[in-house]
Design a binder for these strands. Structure first.
Lengths: 242, 242
DNA sequence: TAACTTATTGTCCATTTGACCACAAGACAT
DNA sequence: ATGTCTTGTGGTCAAATGGACAATAAGTTA
């Protein structure tokens, strides 16, 4: 077995090197965001001269005493400053030659974050980090383009079958924001009154009894998604569908 | 890093030890079968005295030059004789202490196989291998009970949203067989004429222009699932739902 | 031939969906 | 104030769908 693993894989320098790392196994985070109804992906720039100018999903090595999701949270925060989000496992990518000079399998995690979190990113960044439009991505290292392609396909499916779209919006949102989100991700046009009815009939949203602020037209009511209600409903056989 | 990995993890002895193995990473296969409308899971008996009497999902170590799915196929066939099925990745399990004495992350694959394949298993088995009723499982090693629990939850969801149930049936099947499958897995009772209509309207099945044989009543027409049709339909926005 | 089992078709009605209309509520310009 | 613009919100209506259930068809067995 060759052991010349590139020592600059992402921000490895930032890790505590006194700890053992599983060099056969890495984490990569695919973070989706929504900005102006455009689906974005969070990337960090590679510092490795071998990959000059290329970008990568924020990821790195897992520690021996660290659960996978914990590693994902740690790496994401270290690299981008993004925290307090819910990471879910996407898929594990292990094609034999996906990584140069050595066999590395990576576990990809994904999350959807709201526009409000954008601010956090710019502030605490440690590497060169940026949001990219999901259908206008820069050159990427390794098989990260494959991971993103898979993640996009997965997202478009999931968003129709699970109430995860809410995570891309602020805590309180209007029905039109929600509709625009679906239109953006599914690349369709939906009827406003019908969409409204469909969502409301699910009883997943509770009214904040508050209006939108600062809009140059009639202010819409704000709602928020209640995961507890969804939990109860899905236990009794309810199935989310858009 | 400790290196005293148990040398008897499943059928390691059967592997070609001249090849490097990634000892931090393993594969486990969760194979679902259907027998008399009962959902079954394929398990192998542990030979390791440490786990005497316990059963395990058929799995083992990945080779350095082997893609994940290829490893899954190889291990499954070596341990159980089962081959020619479609393995799909389920999830990766990596809890820190899931494996004794060392950190081992496992990539779980799953497949659904038809009753007809049962015969293959008994014949070519190399270890003690058997089908177990999904809700009456023996003691299992490591976190395999967790993997199965996750897989069952996943299966019950998937079967409603993807046309994968067909894989649990023989190539040619009747509509009542399909209905019984859904009733067994989802634990519900469905209306025969309505179920029939719903399935047929999807246009996923093509008639074999053949009748059931040897039944003590009117023979039903046989159908088979056409993955090509499904592929076309889903490209044009069709979404499978039961 | 009758009795029985499952297959298959048909019918009715409540609910849902999709297309579209109309009005309400506020912001803004005049 | 008045009108106009934009988005929010509530309706209508026909078509499609889904669930309950009756009825008939096609075989097997006694």
């Amino acid at each position: 077995m060759s052991t010349n693993i590139p020592t600059t894989y992402l921000q490895e320098k930032r890790l505590d090197l006194s700890q053992d790392l599983i060099k056969a196994l890495s984490i990569d985070n695919l973070i989706f965001g929504l900005d102006q109804n455009q689906l974005k992906i969070l990337l960090v720039r590679q510092t490795d001269p071998m990959h000059e100018g290329k970008w990568a999903l924020p990821g790195g090595w897992i520690r021996y005493d660290e659960n996978l999701r914990d590693a994902a949270y740690r790496l994401l925060e270290d690299l981008t400053g993004v925290k307090q989000l819910y990471l879910e496992q996407l898929k594990t990518f292990g094609r034999v030659n996906r990584f140069p000079n050595d066999r590395v399998v990576t576990v990809a995690y994904y999350a959807l974050v709201s526009a409000e979190d954008y601010l956090l990113v710019a502030g605490q960044t440690a590497a060169d980090v940026s949001w990219f439009n999901a259908n206008d991505l820069p050159a990427l290292v390794y098989d990260h383009a494959d991971i993103i392609a898979y993640g996009l396909k997965f997202l478009r499916h999931q968003i129709r079958h699970q109430p995860i779209g809410f995570n891309l919006l602020p805590e309180k949102f209007t029905l039109l924001q929600l509709q625009a989100l679906y239109e953006a991700i599914l690349n369709t046009k939906l009827d406003k009154p019908n969409f409204r009815r469909k969502i409301m009939k699910m009883n997943l949203l509770t009214s904040c009894d508050e209006k939108q602020q600062g809009v140059p037209h009639r202010a819409a009511n704000l709602y928020h998604f209640d995961p507890e209600i969804y939990k109860k409903l899905s236990e009794s056989g309810f199935s989310f569908e858009i």
